[in-house]
Simulated scan of single mutants.
Amino acid sequence: MRIVIEFYRTRAQDDAHALLGRESAEVADLAAAIALAGLRAQALADSPALMPQRPDALVIRDADGTTLHELAFDDALLPPTERRSP
C-alpha cells in the first residue's frame, strides 16, 4: 500500500502544527508503515542536517489522505533543551 509519512512540529499553547517534512513509500501493511516511520524518525534524530528542526509528531496517511496512525514523540526522547515540560 502507498503511504505518506508527515513530520510535524507542534505548539501546545494553541495546538498549531507546522509540517517539517513529507515522505512517501510503498509498504505491505500498517505495521510495516509504522516500522518505517520509526526508522525515518530515528534517522532524522541521528542526522540533524537532514531536517532544519526536530519533529515532535508524525502522521501516516494512505494514498487518499486518510490518517492511519498518529504519534507524538515523548518529551523524554528529546534533548533537555528541546523539552516542553520539565
Rank of each mutant, 00 (worst) to 15 (best):
D56T: 13
D46P: 10
R61E: 01
E23Q: 13
A12Q: 08
A25G: 08
Q53F: 07
Q42Y: 05
R9T: 07
Q53C: 02
D62L: 09
A37T: 08
I3C: 09
L44N: 08
H69D: 00
L39P: 01
D29M: 10
A28D: 04
E6I: 08
G65S: 03
V4S: 06
G21F: 12
D56E: 05
A12R: 13
P79A: 03
R11M: 01
L30Q: 07
D46G: 14
A18E: 09
H17T: 03
E23K: 14
T67D: 09
R2F: 10
A76I: 07
R9W: 13
A43C: 06
V4W: 06
T66Q: 11
Y8M: 04
H17A: 04
L50F: 10
Q13N: 02
T10Y: 06
A25V: 10
T67Q: 05
S85I: 14
T66W: 11
A31L: 06
M51H: 09
D46S: 12
R40P: 02
R83Y: 13
R54H: 03
A72L: 03
A28G: 05
R61L: 10
I3H: 04
D46R: 15
L78Y: 06
A28Q: 06
R84F: 09
R84Q: 07
I5D: 00
A43M: 11
Q42A: 11
T10Q: 05
D46A: 15
Q13S: 06
A72N: 07
E70S: 10
Q13Y: 09
E23G: 06
P55E: 01
E82N: 00
S47W: 10
D14R: 08
P48C: 05
A49N: 00
L58M: 09
I60A: 12
P79G: 01
L78S: 12
P79M: 02
E6F: 03
R2S: 02
F7N: 00
L36K: 14
A63L: 14
L19Y: 05
A18S: 11
L20P: 05
I60L: 12
V59N: 04
Y8E: 01
E23R: 14
D29A: 13
M51G: 10
D46I: 08
S47L: 12
Q42N: 08
R22W: 03
A76G: 12
D74L: 09
D46N: 14
D62M: 15
E82D: 12
R83D: 00
R54D: 02
A43H: 10
L44A: 14
L44I: 15
L36C: 12
V59I: 11
D56P: 06
G38D: 01
S47D: 11
G38Q: 03
H69V: 05
R61H: 06
E26G: 10
A16M: 08
T10R: 14
A28W: 02
L30V: 05
D75Y: 12
A12W: 15
L44K: 10
A57H: 09
I34L: 02
T67N: 03
D75Q: 14
A43G: 05
R9Q: 07
P79Q: 01
A32H: 12
V4P: 01
A41D: 07
A35G: 04
D14L: 07
T10E: 05
I60Y: 06
T66Y: 13
D64E: 15
D56W: 07
R2Y: 07
R22T: 14
A35F: 09
H17G: 01
A35D: 11
P79E: 00
E70T: 14
D29R: 13
R11L: 00
L77H: 09
